[in-house]
């Protein structure tokens, strides 16, 4: 169970964070949530799909990293094998928490928390979080930016999905992947952009999506599908090694 603490330069002055990518740090996931602002970076490496949150049934976009639970095809013995590491992987062991603040909008303000039970947390190796005199390290500044982008992205996802549903642009896909050894993998519960519907949208609808800033992300999702081939190739490579 994660054990989150409000990050501060007193309790956590000696904390270091390991940034290596490996299964032992929890990077062996087959998908991660992503956000419209991140799609451009994601689509060059990973296919983007939608999935429903098991708790709420709400759609959210994700980057697909593997074909089954625990399979991350980009994770190798030498770390992460792709140009870009998704925000939701980069963020560990940090998280945005909220603190009550009557002066902030909605009565709460975002604060940085750290999971002290994460295997990434160390005192001996990794990136420094706070400078000797208590100042913020470059690493922490970068991480704060990651967390901010995630926080904004979360809110944008809700609006993005709402707009897509309004125009019936989401459709379910079921895929069966045939691997070189003749075995098959079934991908269930994934959704994508309904291209036929997108082609049929009139100027008014397209204008609305454009104005909301959602037209580019829609095309980024379509473009990302060419990365699907990378996944299959990587999976086949593993067959040869094994």
């Amino acid at each position: 169970m994660p054990n989150y603490e409000l990050l501060n330069n007193v309790d956590h002055k000696n904390v270091k964070v390991i940034t290596d990518r490996a299964a032992r740090y929890g990077d062996n996931v087959h998908c991660v949530m992503t956000f419209p602002t991140e799609f451009r970076r994601i689509q060059s490496c990973y296919p983007i799909f939608f999935q429903k949150d098991a708790n709420t049934g709400k759609f959210f976009p994700l980057a697909l990293l593997g074909f089954e639970e625990g399979e991350n095809l980009f994770l190798t013995e030498n770390g992460w094998d792709a140009n870009y590491v998704p925000l939701m992987i980069q963020r560990h062991p940090f998280l945005i928490g909220y603190q009550e603040d009557s002066e902030a909008p909605e009565g709460k303000r975002p604060v940085v928390s750290i999971d002290m039970d994460s295997p990434r947390v160390s005192e001996s190796e990794g990136e420094t979080v706070f400078l000797p005199h208590g100042g913020t390290s470059e690493f922490l500044t970068a991480m704060t930016e990651v967390l901010e982008e995630i926080q904004v992205g979360h809110q944008m996802n809700d609006a993005f999905i709402e707009a897509l549903l309004e125009f019936d642009l989401i459709e379910s896909v079921s895929m069966e992947i045939g691997l070189n050894d003749g075995s098959k993998r079934q991908l269930l519960g994934l959704y994508t952009i309904n291209e036929e519907r997108l082609d049929q949208l009139d100027g008014e609808a397209l204008g609305k999506l454009q104005k909301l800033g959602f037209l580019l992300p829609v095309y980024m999702i379509l473009a990302s599908l060419s990365s699907f081939r990378t996944l299959i190739d990587k999976r086949n490579e593993r067959l040869e090694v094994a």
Partner: peptide, 11 residues
């Protein structure tokens, strides 16, 4: 409870 809270998706 969830249907009241968030509702089903159409697809």
């Amino acid at each position: 409870g969830k249907v009241h809270e968030v509702g089903f998706q159409k697809i």
